[in-house]
């Protein structure tokens, strides 16, 4: 069974990577933000969050963060995911589910192309 003691190994692995990386990297962090107020949670934000986390972790992308936020003010369109890529305008995806999350990850986060089908107004 995994325990806190295992964290040391992961930490050492991650630290080795950070040492090799440029300081300016922090500003070049992509953020995937999932809306998690009551409306988002009820609509299925939690599996979307965890899907993104696993995809980023599996690829070992150290410059991508997945975070949650409160109400994004459009309850009917939840789960809502905002993507912040440094130097680019914010992109808002609506009615996201784990399958769409996979697609957004592959095409947008990895591939750099906005997935226009899942944008607000397209739903």
């Amino acid at each position: 069974m995994k325990s806190i003691a295992d964290i040391k190994a992961i930490r050492d692995k991650m630290q080795a990577r950070i040492v090799n990386r440029d300081n300016s990297d922090a500003e070049l962090e992509t953020r995937i933000v999932v809306g998690m107020a009551t409306c988002g949670i009820a609509a299925g934000a939690r599996p979307v969050f965890n899907e993104f986390v696993d995809l980023v972790a599996a690829k070992g992308m150290h410059n991508v963060k997945v975070t949650r936020t409160g109400c994004l003010g459009m309850c009917k369109l939840e789960p809502i995911v905002e993507i912040f890529v440094p130097g680019e305008e914010k992109v808002t995806y609506v009615k996201v589910d784990p399958d769409k999350a996979k697609e957004i990850f592959t095409r947008h986060i990895v591939g750099g192309q906005v997935v226009s089908e899942y944008l607000i107004g397209e739903q």
Partner: peptide, 27 residues
Amino acid sequence: EIKAELGDIPIDSPEIISFLRNLLKEN
């Protein structure tokens, strides 16, 4: 306790989140 072990690695790094989810599930 986790943060004490992690030092300067943020607890919300995706790899850490994934690991902690599995740790929680098993326990």
